[in-house]
């Protein structure tokens, strides 16, 4: 564990807590894309399939449970909570998740670190699922970014949520750079490229978020 990865995990945790805070306290999910939240639930479910079979550390297991629990409870709130669901604007949240999930699944089958299409063993299945979750996480924010472009007024909590979500992966990139220079054989092109793509998708959001912070004006994304 290094400071970049710890900061990345804490930033990721904070983004989830900001969203849960918004939904749980003001009972509103205005401006939040349910499609993105559902994609994140799929990301965590496919990434942490081995949560009970491969134990790493108490921290690792606790964080996995928090991410799984929070992502599924956010989806539950937005779908079924009688007050929260009323503030979900489904007409603005029109991105079709399958056009993201299918290419990621195909890509995970074609391009993964195990290349050799060995016997279809459980470990290969887990690895394909893990790679799928990596690709899916890179694009999962797209429905949310599309929705932000449409909903003119972005409230502070939503802006902070998206910012923290983008910042966590940027910190992970620093973590990978650090591990590359401090550990031997630490080369993971697939993870690095998908992490980079993920962070670059936030580039314009970061720009407008910084501008709104610098000029102390409301965050507005150009149409």
């Amino acid at each position: 564990m290094n400071i970049f990865r710890l900061a990345g995990d804490m930033t990721h945790l904070l983004s989830v807590l900001v969203l849960l805070l918004k939904i749980h306290t003001i009972k509103s999910c205005a401006g939040i894309s349910l499609k993105t939240q559902e994609l994140y639930a799929v990301v965590f479910a496919t990434r942490y399939l081995d949560i009970f079979t491969s134990y790493i550390s108490p921290y690792n297991t606790m964080m996995k449970l928090i991410f799984l629990g929070s992502s599924f409870s956010i989806v539950w709130y937005m779908r079924y909570h009688k007050i929260v669901r009323r503030s979900y604007d489904k007409d603005q949240d029109t991105f079709r998740p399958y056009i993201l999930m299918l290419p990621c699944l195909i890509l995970a089958l074609l391009i993964n670190e195990k290349f050799t299409f060995k016997e279809i063993s459980t470990s290969f299945f887990l690895f394909v699922m893990w790679t799928f979750s990596l690709y899916l996480e890179a694009v999962a924010i797209l429905p949310q970014l599309v929705m932000l472009q449409r909903t003119r007024n972005i409230d502070n909590l939503t802006g902070q949520y998206v910012f923290l979500l983008g910042a966590y992966r940027a910190l992970y990139i620093l973590n990978w750079i650090y591990r590359y220079f401090t550990e031997e054989h630490f080369v993971h092109w697939i993870t690095w490229i998908s992490g980079l793509v993920q962070t670059l998708l936030y580039a314009d959001f970061f720009y407008y978020y910084f501008q709104s912070w610098k000029n102390n004006v409301k965050l507005q994304l150009p149409a």
Partner: peptide, 10 residues
């Protein structure tokens, strides 16, 4: 974490 692999990452 064992050297070089990503298993310990979230």
């Amino acid at each position: 974490s064992s050297n070089g692999d990503l298993k310990d990452e979230l």
